[in-house]
Design a protein around this nucleic acid. Structure first.
Lengths: 190, 190
DNA sequence: CGCGGGTTTGATGATGCTCAAGCCCGGTGG
DNA sequence: CCACCGGGCTTGAGCATCATCAAACCCGCG
């Protein structure tokens, strides 16, 4: 049993050991091998996923039938399709591991019950949502203001750990670029 | 005193009249004329803004010195620069009215105090943040998958009310287009 | 009537995509 | 231990999309 989620929660609110026990009744933890699916398109499993350890990507298939990555998640990050989660509708996305990973998940009914039992977790999730929204706003700003070349260079220098763990063509996809174009950029930088 | 915020909160949680009184001690409401600034770049006023009535835009100035709009807000929407709000750092953005508007705002210290006095508001703000994040994810998906032409057409048919209230060049900016390009698209559709 | 914000026009050009092919390298089976 | 296979990365030619720039136009408002 990996307890990064507990640690993460305790960064934001106090959580007694008995509350921790209650929490563990509502969440589910499992291991995935590289390239396994945590969530499939059209699945009815509407959950929030917490990466205890590992690396995930969330993507959809566009009209040209190619995978379009919209988000990565590394250790101690939450990831989910919130539209689907909130409305309880099928998701357009796939969530898949990039490395062997350990994931803790909670679906919407479980979350509701958990929040009734431990209301102060509302605060934790408010803070998480707030942070994720801040991150989304920031990414959006970068995509508005930067040329594709600058976007790539900025990403490489800002998140060097990704370059180690994630293949180039996935980074390209995430940034809205083609693998060929990224290849050209790398050549140019030498 | 406009009470759309109260109504909005009551859609999500119960709020007694006495709690409403407490709430009103922490928030601030004011009217703005068309084109007034609700927040200036580099200001230290780190607040969440709720549009009781009216229409706002949030934008920054890019390296070519042109305004880049990243978000609109109509009646009963929240808007803010969360990165600045969370970290208490100066904002890169301007928030300005497009029409005469009534805005209710709350800054981060006030919010913290309010949440201590009425903890169940944590739930309300969690839900709001969740919804905003869902909206941000959805917009991001559209910008990944659609051509600029499709983006514009989709926006026009999905949000006809904006076309009435917001000048074309602002819509163009929000969608990452030039006014000239949008002009060309409209001509083409006749 | 004149001013100014917003929109339109059209010519020119850059950015970054498409497509097809080849290459590199690590893993697997013979 | 070598040969092959395949996923990922690279190359280059051709091209589409959309931005840029400068100018004119339109129209509501003072």
């Amino acid at each position: 049993m990996n307890d990064n989620l507990i640690k993460h929660i305790r960064k934001h609110i106090d959580l007694s050991d008995s509350e921790t026990m209650i929490l563990s009744k509502y969440v589910e933890q499992s291991s995935y091998k590289r390239k396994e699916f945590v969530m499939q398109e059209n699945s009815d499993c509407k959950s929030l996923f917490f990466v205890e350890k590992g690396c995930l990507r969330m993507y959809f298939i566009n009209e040209k039938a190619v995978e379009q990555i919209v988000q990565f998640a590394l250790d101690s990050w939450w990831i989910s399709d919130l539209k689907s989660f909130i409305n309880n509708t099928p998701s357009d996305y796939y969530i898949q591991t990039i490395e062997n990973s350990i994931i803790t998940s909670i679906n919407s009914e479980q979350l509701e019950q958990l929040l009734t039992e431990i209301p102060k977790l509302e605060r934790y999730f408010r803070i998480i949502m707030q942070q994720e929204l801040a991150a989304a706003q920031f990414k959006s700003k970068l995509m508005y203001e930067m040329s594709k070349e600058d976007l790539y260079n900025h990403f490489v220098t800002s998140f060097p750990e990704f370059i180690q763990r994630v293949p180039q063509y996935m980074i390209a996809s995430y940034l809205g670029l083609t693998p060929e174009y990224v290849s050209g950029l790398r050549k140019k930088k030498l």
